[in-house]
Simulated assay, not measured.
Amino acid sequence: MGGDGKVFTLAEVSDHNTSKDCWLIISGKVYDVTKFLEDHPGGDEVLLSATGKDATDDFEDVGHSDSARDMMKEFYVGEIDATTIPKKTTYTPPKQPNYNHDKTSEFIIKILQFLVPLAILGLAVGIRFYTKAA
């Protein structure tokens, strides 16, 4: 198609979201993929679901071939006005208070680490003497 370098807003591109008129945004460029919907190996639903947003991550996650990337040139219609695309935010976990190490529970764990094996050993020895005596 060969765009003339026109700049589109996200709202303008989002209006093209049907099987009869489908535009995508990939890496800051706008593509009219309407004629390609039937030929797309992943089906037209994949392309239609990527309209109205920046589909760069969707496109890259699939791992398209070099020939697929070359094919995009014929569907190019222009650039996207980056100021109209919402910024991606990263998840920041909420601040939590530092864990207060309870020295008492630490001491109890150390005692149990000593006593439990000792109790198992005592039980084994007791069973051995009990079975010998009987």
Rank of each mutant, 00 (worst) to 15 (best):
V116H: 04
T84I: 01
L48A: 12
K6H: 13
I127P: 03
S65L: 02
L37Y: 11
I85H: 08
A124Y: 10
G42W: 01
T83M: 05
E106Y: 09
T18Q: 05
A55N: 01
L112V: 09
V125C: 00
D81C: 10
A134F: 06
M71F: 07
F8A: 07
S67P: 13
A119K: 00
V33A: 00
D102I: 15
D15P: 07
D61P: 01
I109W: 06
G3L: 11
T104Y: 10
K6T: 12
L24R: 11
N98K: 10
H101M: 06
D44Y: 11
Y76V: 07
G2F: 12
L10T: 04
G42K: 08
Q113T: 05
D61I: 13
F129Q: 01
K20R: 06
H64N: 03
V116E: 02
K6V: 14
E74F: 03
A119P: 01
D54M: 14
L118I: 06
D44K: 15
N100L: 07
G5R: 07
S67A: 12
L24A: 04
T9Q: 01
D39C: 04
Y76H: 05
L47C: 15
L118H: 07
G2R: 10
I25W: 10
L121P: 06
G63D: 01
R128N: 07
D21I: 14
I111F: 12
A133N: 04
C22T: 09
A133W: 10
D32K: 02
I109R: 08
K95A: 15
Q113K: 05
F59A: 02
K110T: 00
E45K: 12
K73L: 09
T89L: 12
S65C: 00
P117F: 05
A119E: 00
Y130P: 03
D70T: 03
L115V: 08
D44E: 13
G5S: 12
T34Q: 10
V30Q: 03
V13Q: 15
S14E: 02
K132Q: 03
S65T: 06
I25S: 11
A119D: 00
L118E: 03
V33Q: 01
P94W: 10
A11F: 02
F59R: 05
H16Y: 04
S14R: 11
K110L: 00
E45M: 11
D81H: 10
I80G: 03
P93L: 15
D15K: 08
G42S: 08
D70A: 12
D15F: 00
S27Y: 01
